[in-house]
Design a binder for these strands. Sequence first.
DNA 1: CCACGTGATGTCAGTGCCTGCAATCACGCG
DNA 2: CGCGTGATTGCAGGCACTGACATCACGTGG
Lengths: 185, 185
Amino acid sequence: MELFAERGYGKTTVEDIAARAGLTERTFFRYFTDKREVLFAGSELFVKQVVDAVRAAPRSSAALDAVLSACESTGDFFEERRPFARRRNALISAHAELQERELIKMMSLASAITETLKQRGTSSAAASLAAEAGLAIFRVGFDQWARDPRDRSLVLHLRAARRQLEAVVVGARKSGLRAHTRGSS
Amino acid sequence: MELFAERGYGKTTVEDIAARAGLTERTFFRYFTDKREVLFAGSELFVKQVVDAVRAAPRSSAALDAVLSACESTGDFFEERRPFARRRNALISAHAELQERELIKMMSLASAITETLKQRGTSSAAASLAAEAGLAIFRVGFDQWARDPRDRSLVLHLRAARRQLEAVVVGARKSGLRAHTRGSS
DNA sequence: CCACGTGATGTCAGTGCCTGCAATCACGCG
DNA sequence: CGCGTGATTGCAGGCACTGACATCACGTGG
C-alpha cells in the first residue's frame, strides 16, 4: 500500500514490492500467485468467517436472512478499519484488473455461501439466488458505507439496502402480476 | 475458438491467434486490448442492446420488470447459438482469468443499466439493486439454460429464476419481520 | 561438534503478454 | 506518377510469471 500510494499501482513492479519487504521477486511469487493477490491476502479467512456465520444461523431463519446476518457479522471487522477500507477501495476501483480480482473473490464467496445453504436444505437455485441477492445487498450497502460522509455503521447501510431490494422485488411482483393478468388470457 | 479447442487457452499464444488470422501479434493488439478480449468481442454492442431494451420498457413498469424484460429480449440472440454459447461457457468457466473478464463485463452492464434506470426516475440505490438483482437472475437463469439437457428456452429459465428470487426475498421478509418483532421491543 | 535433512530463500534463464516508436505498405485521389 | 492517409509490420524492451537448480538456516540425532 505504501508503494502503491507513492508511485501508483501500475508503476510499482513486483521487484519493488519484494525489495521493500526485504525479499526477492521469486520469493514474492511463492507467497502470492499474482501481483494483484497482494491486495487480497487473507481473503480465504474472510470467506471462512462468513460461511461459518451462515452455518451458525438458526435453522428456522430463511436463506436470505442467514446470508444477511452473516454479512452483518462482518461489521465489527470493517468498522475498525474504515480508513484503510476506503483507501483500498479507491485503489481497486481505479484499476480494472483489481476490480476483476475483487469480483471473482466475491463470486467465490457466493459459491461458498451457496454450498452452505444447500447443506441447510435450501434448493440449489434458491441457494444461488439467496447468495447472489445477499451479496448484491452487501455490495450496495458496503459502497454506501464507504462513501458515507456521516460515517454511519455498515449494519445500518446493509439494512437500508435490504429494504430497497425488498421494495424493488415486491414492487415488481405486484405490477408484474397485474401486467401479466392483463396481458395474457 | 478453433485454436483454443485444439491446444487449450493457456497453450495458445497471441502470436498463434494472429498467425491463424493472417496477421501479426502487433496487429492483434490494435484490435484487442488483451488476449482475453478476443472472447468478448462485440460486448459493447450487447450492452447497448440491453440498455436500449431497458430504455424502451414502458414507464409504468417497475424497475426490475424493465431489467428482466430486457434480459428476455436477448433470448432470440442466444437461442440461435446455444451450442456456441455452451462451448464458450465451458471455456470461460475453465479459466479463472476469463471468468474475471466476464464478471467485469457483467458489472459494466450493471452500471449501464443502473444509469438508465436512474434516468427513468428510479432512485440511485433502487436502480443499483434492480440492476444487480436482474443480473443475478440472468446469471442463474442463463446457467440453467446452458446446462439444460432438455433445451428449454432461456425465457423459461429466466422466469423460473425470477420466481425463485421472489420467494427468497419475500420468504425472508416474512420470517425476518416475525423474528424482528419477537427479538426487539 | 558434526553430518544430515528439510523447508525457506536466492539465482538464472526463459516464455509470453503488452507497449512505444519508427518504417513500410496499400490504396484512393488529383 | 506523386502524395497523403490509415493499416500493418518490425523491432526493442519492460514486466509478470515459471521451472530447475543452488544455497542457506536451522533443528535433530549421532
